[in-house]
Nucleic acid binder design. Structure first.
Length: 434
RNA sequence: GGGGAGGUACCCAAGUGGUCAAAGGGGGCAGACUGUAAAUCUGCUGGCAUCGCCUUCGGGGGUUCAAAUCCCUCUCUCCCCA
């Protein structure tokens, strides 16, 4: 007797609000339910904040339900005002199109889009050719402006201003749901908590135009213990695209979480049993972070990359549980053994940003300051100078104190120059003849 | 359309003729402590550099020995009225 996936989601902290909880739970405990989540093509990559709905979709798909992912090719042109204090800049059509393509491939990493699997649709297909007057007469008449004005997303913007364009977003998303309900048998829409208003509108519309009962579910906005939006710090978002956030950095992001966030994030971002997520945190918080980081990296970048990142991290910082004492269903302990046996747990260059220098570059005897800047460890010469003055600059693991230090061929070790800023930021230059 | 208030560094925000590269806070970076965590403490936080120099206070123009500060103009944002 397997657990109802509804309970799984609840237990793992995915549920924020649902409509008609009792019925929805019953449906999800039974035969296949077709459900959908919409994604806006606003960036070239999704970040960890976008991952929550995807993880939920995977849980549901594993439980035998049928996911539909909607790429907002049409709605993206309007821009969802939900949860935003001001209008975001509109992307042009080319950019949107590109982003849609990126979204598709990224979703494919998590969901199974095989024959009987998940479906991927673009709402441009049914919204793109809508006739304005027809739309107003068929769909617009079901909406009450009075009601729309009470939506949180609208109220928020009544203060600062809301364009008519954005005001219409809600109608389009509601229309999506109605279309999916009618043509694809979709009865559940899920989304972030700021989507509640849009989802409820869709449920109403589906009932009015096709007399169908549908359901809605929202996920909490994931925040860290400091109350900040998760995965999108000032320093930059944590992207799932390796080009933008390398697997090593991705791993490090999880490894460096605040203690208080680990259990919560493990439930959301791994598939380990919820009870285990609590247990490992209880047993050894640092091991729990390693397991979380490994599992999360595995899900996004695949097992080989996760192993590499883990190996590099252990080599750099040591292991939190060298003897594998902590019980876990993760295959990290076996990976541990394998790495140990093959002697791979030594200083590794994997994942460390590397760029190249030529011998003629070195003949000009560049200053340390210049190399630090070139390595992106400092944004300007002044910053590099500061770094050195404050004792945060390392050349070949040796702390540098002279801001005027010049780099020569003697600093090349085994064809490389190793730079470090602070404890964690590394860069390697490989030196080649030209 | 009329009236009012504003636009200062990554963000918030002081500053209303020289002492302003511009207070304070947040954020960020580095150091100490530590567990690659948190909290705390310290330093730094426009650029180039040997005193020093150069570019910044929405854009442009002007007054002045001297402007973030005064005048003109353009522009953007917010508020109130119609």
């Amino acid at each position: 007797m397997s657990t109802n996936v509804f309970d799984t989601l609840q237990e793992r902290g995915f549920l924020y609000q649902t409509t008609d909880e009792e019925n929805l739970r019953k449906l999800l405990g039974g035969g296949p339910v077709t459900f959908y989540v919409g994604f806006d093509p606003t960036a070239t990559s999704m970040h960890v904040g976008n991952l929550v709905p995807i993880m939920a979709m995977v849980h549901l798909q594993r439980a035998g339900h049928r996911p539909i992912a909607i790429v907002g090719g049409a709605t993206g042109m309007v821009g969802d005002p939900s949860g935003k204090t001001e209008a975001r800049t509109l992307l042009d059509k080319d950019a949107l199109h590109k982003n849609c393509e990126y979204l598709k491939t990224q979703l494919g990493r998590y969901l199974d889009f095989g024959e009987e699997g998940a479906k991927l649709l673009n709402n441009l297909d049914w919204i793109g050719d809508l006739n304005y007057i027809d739309f107003l007469r068929e769909i617009g008449r079901h909406f009450s402006v009075n009601r729309m004005l009470t939506a949180e997303s609208v109220k928020l913007r009544l203060e600062t201003g809301l364009s008519f364009l954005e005001f219409n977003y809600m109608l389009l998303q509601a229309y999506d749901f109605a279309v999916l309900a009618k043509d694809h048998g979709c009865i559940l829409q899920m989304g972030g908590q700021d989507q509640w208003g849009n989802i409820v509108m869709g449920i109403d519309l589906a009932r009015r135009v096709s007399k169908k009962s549908t359901y809605g579910m929202t996920f909490p906005l994931v925040t860290n213990s400091a109350g900040e939006k998760f995965g999108k710090s000032v320093a930059g978002a944590i992207w799932i695209e390796a080009e933008q956030t390398s697997p090593y950095h991705y791993y490090q992001f999880w490894r460096n979480l605040d203690d208080r966030d680990v259990a919560k994030m493990a439930k959301l971002y791994t598939f380990l049993p919820a009870s285990e997520c609590d247990a490992i945190c209880e047993a050894n918080i640092n091991r729990a972070k390693e397991i979380l980081a490994f599992e999360a990296t595995k899900i996004t970048h695949g097992a080989p990359e996760a192993e590499k990142s883990y190996a590099a991290s252990v080599a750099e910082f040591g292991s939190a549980d060298p003897d594998g004492r902590i019980e876990t269903t993760s295959d990290l302990p076996s990976v541990d053994l394998r790495l140990k046996a093959s002697g791979k747990l030594q200083k590794s260059e994997e994942g460390i940003p590397t760029s190249s220098l030529t011998t003629s570059d070195l003949e000009q005897t560049p200053r340390l300051i210049e190399l630090l800047t070139r390595a992106d460890l400092a944004t300007s010469a002044s910053e590099a100078r500061r770094l050195i003055k404050q004792g945060g600059a390392y050349l070949n693991e040796e702390r540098m104190s002279d801001p005027e230090r010049v780099i020569t061929g003697e600093d090349v070790q085994e064809g490389k120059i190793a730079l470090r800023a602070g404890k964690k930021r590394h860069h390697r230059f490989t030196v080649t003849n030209d």
